[in-house]
Simulated assay, not measured.
Amino acid sequence: MWDNIIAGFNQQLTPQVWQLIGASTFETIYMTLAATIFAIVFGMPLGILTFVTRKGEVLENARLNRVLELLINIGRSVPFIILLLVLMPVTRFIVGSTLGTTASIIPLGMAAMPFFARLTANALGDIPSGLTETAKAMGTTVWQLVTKFYLPEALPILIKAATLTFVTLIGYSAMAGAVGGGGLGNTAISYGLHRNMPYVLWAATIIIVLIVMVCERYGNKLADHFDRR
């Protein structure tokens, strides 16, 4: 039994295949990291605006808040595979193709943006109201309140939110691989499934799990480092 397993392992996981897996690992990290940055850059302002327009906050605006909440909820509710297909014309317009690692960044980032916006709004909502009132009493502007008070206070939670977003996108990137998105997902499907190479499938899966574990470990450590509570 073990001889057959070792023989199959050596037969399927040749140096050329390991090289392919290494390149696919880099592609997965590249598109997931780029999509996470996209989600933070565009999702954080959306989450901040959603929070500050809530009832009792500095820019209270019930109508605008309802619109923002609706947009976030709709964005989070659309299944990623459907979003991937719907955004194909947009991806083709921006990147010039719907295939490949770079093309996958667009739907990945769009899927993560409302997710991170919700996490940002919730993180700011966890700030004690007494501290918020103190900052307001000092005569701070809205910009100062957000940049000097809200964000520093919520930084540990926001780091954990970014870590969670990255981990979630790892799973989405594997799904994108099913439609030619590149990365470990594409390798697992193209070789592990379509070419009946189960050891490639298992190798890709184990690497994805390891990436998630490393990201969560060091993301949580970084969050704890900035936690002043």
Rank of each mutant, 00 (worst) to 15 (best):
H194I: 11
A103I: 01
T140R: 10
W202H: 01
S24Y: 06
F9S: 10
P15E: 04
R217N: 06
V167G: 00
I40V: 15
P114H: 06
I127R: 04
A137V: 07
T53R: 02
S104T: 13
L158S: 10
I48R: 03
T168N: 13
R229C: 03
A103G: 01
I94W: 13
A223R: 08
F26R: 08
T165P: 05
N73A: 12
N4S: 14
F116C: 02
T141W: 08
I74S: 10
N73W: 08
V200D: 00
F93Q: 15
T141D: 06
I81E: 06
A103D: 00
P107N: 06
M31I: 10
P152T: 03
A154G: 05
L84K: 01
H194N: 11
I127K: 07
T14R: 05
S97H: 12
S77V: 08
L85M: 15
A62R: 14
I159K: 01
L59T: 07
G109I: 04
M175P: 07
I211C: 01
V78E: 04
S24V: 01
F115Y: 13
E133Y: 03
L201H: 02
L169F: 00
I5W: 14
T134P: 06
I105D: 00
P128V: 07
N73R: 06
E216W: 02
F42H: 05
S173H: 08
L59Y: 10
I189C: 00
T98V: 13
P128N: 14
R92V: 15
S190N: 12
Q19I: 01
V209D: 03
A178L: 15
G182I: 02
T120R: 01
G185W: 03
T98K: 05
T132H: 11
I5V: 15
V214P: 03
G47Y: 09
